[in-house]
Design a protein around this nucleic acid. Structure first.
Length: 454
RNA sequence: GGCCCUAUAGAUCAAUGGUGAGAUCAUCAGACUUUCAAUCUGAAGAUUCCGGUUCAACUCCGGAUAGGGCUACCA
């Protein structure tokens, strides 16, 4: 029994598209699931777009998602080189084989692949010109995802351009043969190309690999597949937006694959164990930013507070909420309050702003709402001496002091809470009030209360 | 136009030809004896349409409709 060998063959374009990432991920999962090899092959034949920078974005994106390759750039392997731009001698050799077999001809300076079958002339789709078509044996693809698909290739096609460069269909097949690829897992957009590829495999006398065409990722709303301009399309943007690679990876797994038992949040080990072709869907998947965000929030909440702080610090600094040298203990104490309620790291700066800034914004609607019940200034004025007299400024002490005062006034303690919160934060919501006051500390709280009273 | 793929709540996925069609996100409501985007509980919400096969169809077959893809000397 031969080992599974799968590959991801991206073209460095300067960005790492979520669709490519998903293809890479599925190939990687299949290799890890079967104990096979995952090969990274860079299709860098387009010299215009291919730059150092473009390659870096790609490799960094792969690494960020935790997709390590067994053969390819940086790690090498027995079937190199792993850049198509360095494989010209191999393409020459394979082209010669095709030539010797009489399966090529030249026309208008380009080299064409000659299909096997009876030839006849007919008109093109608009009856504009005469074209030569070939009655071929239909290609039957036993697709691991979609089942039996039958398609006939009926026109010869170019395999080497007149400038001498080989085209995608040709190099793709040659490399797959030369690298011993056993399973080709790729987007459904290649399904129609597969008949061309199978024709080539057969012309080389090679057994075609198992094909598995996975559904495409459609944009969140509107028609068509996800394009690089759609929100959430670029992997390299997720890190800066506070997404965790484990969450993004988990979400992308669910785009076109299902474990079939309603489980969604799974660690990668479990996914590897369960990932296989029967679980891959046939219908296209639609990208859902909200669902990704919800999953990310779940991952965020289970992070150790230290890791969470490490992750959030640069984000807060970038927004100017804190300075680079913000006190670690205070920052961590604040984040400990915010983490359980955090929905995304993008909104977090706004959520914790007032812990660090004295000129925080004041929510006008909340001001009105609070003022309706009682004058917040007089409530705060009542509380001020109570808090000033506190020996220890911790949640429990504050609580019993406030309760004692409220009771003496014949009030419920909650009558004071909204005004207090508003006075120290300008907000109507936020972390639990008592621990929040403790974390803010006596000085800050009292100063803000005094300022509030005016 | 030709060829190929797909079709269950607003979205993403489940359901050996026999269930009360299930889960998550989103939405709405209640709770957590302050707030709140977290948490808990609950509610609403779907088999695209028309035929056929069958004792029985979400499931199999055909058609329609809708969505997606390919149709390059791009990859």
């Amino acid at each position: 029994m031969s080992e599974v060998r799968v590959r991801f063959a991206p073209s460095p374009t300067g960005f790492f598209h979520i669709g490519s990432a998903r293809t890479a991920l599925f190939n990687w999962l299949y290799a890890r699931h079967t104990g096979g090899k995952f090969i990274l092959r860079v299709e860098d034949t387009d010299k215009q777009r291919n730059t150092e920078e473009a390659l870096r974005v790609l490799l960094e994106g792969m690494r960020w998602l935790g997709l390590d390759w067994d053969e390819g750039p940086d790690v090498g392997g027995d079937c190199g080189p792993y850049f198509q731009s360095e494989r010209q001698p191999i393409y020459d050799e394979y082209l010669a084989r095709l030539k010797d077999a009489g399966r090529t001809y030249e026309k208008e300076g380009a080299i064409w692949f000659k299909l096997a079958g009876e030839r006849y002339t007919t008109y093109d789709e608009f009856k504009q010109a005469e074209v030569e078509k070939v009655k071929t044996q239909p290609v039957v693809i036993d697709d691991a995802v979609r089942g039996r698909v039958e398609r006939s290739e009926e026109m010869d096609f170019v395999i080497v351009r007149k400038d001498g460069s080989p085209v995608f269909h040709f190099v793709n097949v040659v490399d797959d043969i030369a690298m011993g690829i056993t399973h080709v897992i790729r987007g459904e957009d290649h399904l129609s190309n597969t008949s061309k590829h199978v024709e080539l495999f057969q012309a080389f006398g090679a057994t075609p690999p198992v094909f598995a065409h996975i559904p495409l990722i459609l944009k969140q709303s509107g028609p068509g597949k996800m394009s690089k301009r759609d929100q959430g399309a670029l992997i390299e943007e997720y890190a800066g937006r506070g997404f965790l690679p484990s969450a993004v990876r988990n979400y992308i797994c669910l785009l076109g694959w299902s474990p079939k038992d309603d489980r969604e949040k799974m660690d990668i080990g479990e996914i590897i164990e369960r990932f296989d072709f029967p679980g891959i869907n046939r219908g296209n998947a639609r990208f859902d930013e909200q669902k990704l965000a919800a999953l990310n929030a779940e991952y965020l909440r289970e992070l150790e507070i230290g890791s969470f702080t490490f992750l959030v610090r640069p984000i807060l600094a970038a927004k100017g909420v804190i300075t680079e040298d913000e006190d670690e203990d205070y920052l961590q104490a604040v984040l400990k309050l915010a983490q359980p309620k955090a929905r995304s790291l993008e909104d977090l700066p706004e959520y914790v702003d007032y812990f660090f800034q004295d000129d925080y914004p004041v929510d006008g609607k909340v001001a009105e709402k609070i003022a309706k019940k009682a004058d917040p200034k007089s409530l705060v004025a009542e509380m001020l001496p109570v808090l000033e007299g506190l020996a220890a400024f911790d949640a429990d002490s504050i609580k019993s002091a406030l309760e004692g005062h409220a009771e003496a006034q014949g009030q419920k303690v909650f009558a004071y809470f909204p005004a207090l919160r508003f006075a120290v934060s300008g907000q109507g919501g936020g972390p639990d009030l008592l621990p929040m006051l403790e974390v803010m500390g006596r000085e800050r709280v009292l100063a803000r209360l005094r300022r509030f009273i005016g």
